[in-house]
Design a protein around this nucleic acid. Structure first.
Lengths: 125, 125, 125, 125
DNA sequence: GTGGTCTAGACCACG
DNA sequence: GTGGTCTAGACCACC
């Protein structure tokens, strides 16, 4: 469910944060469920525990998880907030891309056609 | 016309490359026109000449500019190619953002509405 | 009457100690009354009995409770001492906060106004 | 100007964050001024550079500083925002302490007297 | 067993 | 030179 892409420009811990946030927001990790322990995930992915620790700390800071010392890290109960936050980010990112595309001379028609194709594909999946 | 955002996560030379490419593709820098010299731009922006040098080298490698020894760097004559390359990149970037937005549960309708708003705004400018 | 906040940075046993001390000092737990057994409180709060045990040990060490082997833990008879100890701690804590606030540039007037509001609210409750 | 208290319960990097934030908010570190480099501060305080790095990362995340790769970390230009943020925190902390003190049976009069003493002392310093 | 912190030492990109 | 990331290994408090 979690994997690292070493060709990705982003650092390992950033990839982990992005991936787990996404899983939690989309419901693949159900609210309240426990994440693998730092050491376990570290050995699964062949990564140093410190790196996992760093990602988990960032996740807690962002409100994606909460941590109980000595017990582990758990997905936040309030997934709705998470979901809406993430959608806000995605939408802002989309708008920026769209803005640049329009300014670069791509027609709105082309962009809309592309969106319709993407949406169709997603529905058929 | 060129400015550096120190809060930007990207490195300085990356910002320079992106900015100059964009200016050349959109015609704000006309084909064949001369870029400021490395030293001049460096002092204008209070940046290490090495950094400018690196950006100019990258621009030449990408075909945005060509260099004549002893004379300076010039915007490529073939702006059309540049323009289409840039549009390809912008479009690919847009598609990626759109894909993520759709997957994240944002409706296609919302995205399309947003695009229409952006396009309208650009036309009125 | 007793609950655990897993988001609290303090450890569980510290929260328990603080909470029970406060209840005893304020009279919500009357002098001489019996605390729930380690096992019972553990199952009520879904917490490891070791953790309760540790809290109870700490409470006895601090003079808040006394333990009779085979019978259980009881709130100390001398609640006055408890009450004054606790007030000392609260006052010291208050002074520290007030000191930092003043040093940080908040006016004494603002602090006093706030205290009056808090006091009024407490009286009306 | 910066020192570590090893008896403090807080971790080293937390102390650094708190201390530097405070210095920046109060103006002892002027806006735009450069912090010591990670390595330099590390050797000054006889602390591992990683620990300093962690504190600096946290400071940037909190908006206290901004970082230019290859050049260093600098105090944010907008110190006013910093100052008001910090006062908000101090005030919230003060209110919590005051609330607990009142609930614990300390009279408002005693608290107010204490504040006046603190304020007087601060003014005479 | 769990997470949290720290040290030591290395490598990278950037200026 | 600068900051950023990662590994390795250790120790702590807590459950």
């Amino acid at each position: 469910m979690i994997s690292i892409d070493y060709r990705d420009r982003r650092s390992i811990y950033e990839q982990l944060v992005e991936r787990i946030t996404s899983l939690a927001a989309s419901g693949f990790l159900s609210p309240g469920s426990q994440l693998p322990s730092v050491r376990q995930l570290a050995s699964e992915l062949s990564i140093n525990p410190n790196t996992i620790q760093r990602a988990y700390a960032e996740l807690e800071r962002a409100g994606v998880t909460y941590t109980v010392k000595g017990r582990g890290s758990f997905v936040t109960e309030d997934t709705n907030l998470l979901r809406s936050k993430m959608q806000d980010e995605l939408f802002a990112d989309f708008n920026q891309s769209a803005h640049r595309a329009i300014e670069g001379g791509i027609t709105a028609t082309k962009l809309i056609t592309s969106i319709e194709a993407i949406e169709k594909e997603a529905r058929n999946q």
